[in-house]
Amino acid sequence: MKIKGILFDKDGTLLKFGSIWPKVIGDVIDDLLEMIGEEGNKTLKNELCKSIGLKDGVVDEKGILASGTSLDITRAFQDVLPKDIRYLHEWLSERVLEKTKQSIEHVESVCNLSPLFSALRNKGIVVGIATADDYETTALCLEHLGIREDIQFVGTADLYEKKPSSQVVEKFCEKFGLAREEVAMVGDTVIDMQTAKNSKSGFGIGVLSGVGSKEELEKLADFVIPNVEHLINHDKFIWEVKGDVRINERSFTA
């Protein structure tokens, strides 16, 4: 099997999840409480955090913040809030973008991405993003990381059906004339690995640089690696090192 394209999740896969999103969403919640006249209501803030899988700064790997969309967050918040808020989704999307801009210096890559993307270019691999974030926030983060020009396809939840739908993989394949089995999906959550399975991608590769645990990722992933640096070892992809077969132990260290 020859892999010709790779779809990367963004948060926890290319950029450090904990360096930005708990802070951003915490600031958004504070603004929301102020907007509805509940400023300083710690109980309500804790309930809002809990509704999306955030507790004491720790992100639940199966929670909404880990892999949900801005619409998912909106719905979770609305279920907790004491009253309905019109246009909450639009407000929340705008605030997340604004808070991300304000905290952009906290956006950090999980590792030095330059050697990886240089190697992918040299190998002729088509590179895309498949993320639960909205497009504008995604573009902002990619620009800050200095990898926007390395990404040929940006699949966000406001443009395509959210993961684990196979649509983002299908559109990626359609744009570049790829077969599904010629695409590898790389991500830090079970949702990413389910996306690989649902789309019948060539490989689903879990990374331990985000919120997902090795135990959960191994249930669906073909490979589990520490971070994206380990995709290539001595100029060979991990699936080439292993003889281009799916390994039973699921775990691989380059």
Results as ranks from 00 to 15, higher is better:
K101E: 13
L71T: 06
K200P: 00
A184D: 04
L71V: 07
V168E: 06
I20M: 10
A130K: 03
D192M: 01
D133P: 01
D235G: 02
I20H: 06
D192Q: 02
D9A: 01
S67E: 15
S109K: 05
R75Q: 14
A184W: 08
F17N: 03
E136A: 11
L208S: 04
G187S: 04
I151N: 10
G26S: 12
Q152N: 11
A76S: 14
L15M: 13
C111Y: 10
E229M: 08
V211N: 14
K45M: 13
G206D: 02
W21E: 14
I36F: 09
D56F: 04
F153H: 12
E105D: 15
T43M: 06
E215N: 14
Y160Q: 11
D27H: 10
Y160T: 10
V59L: 05
C49L: 15
K162S: 14
Q167I: 07
L48G: 09
L92H: 04
R86D: 15
L231H: 07
A179R: 13
G210T: 09
G146K: 08
Q194E: 15
A76K: 12
I205D: 00
P115Y: 13
L159Q: 15
S251H: 08
F117I: 12
N41L: 08
I205G: 00
E215Y: 14
G177S: 11
G12R: 04
K242Y: 11
T13C: 02
E136C: 03
V127F: 06
A130D: 03
G243H: 04
K99D: 04
K23R: 05
V245F: 13
E249H: 11
E61D: 08
A139H: 14
F172T: 08
E218Y: 04
V169S: 01
G18F: 12
K42Y: 12
N198S: 03
H230P: 00
R250Y: 02
T189M: 01
T74H: 02
I36E: 13
S199D: 03
E39M: 08
D192E: 06
G177D: 12
D72F: 03
V224C: 07
T137H: 04
S251K: 09
H144W: 14
A196M: 03
L32N: 11
R75S: 13
G146N: 05
K101P: 00
N122M: 15
V96W: 04
L71M: 13
L217M: 05
G18K: 13
D192N: 01
E143L: 10
V110P: 00
S93I: 07
K55T: 15
L92I: 08
A76R: 09
M185P: 00
L92D: 05
R95S: 05
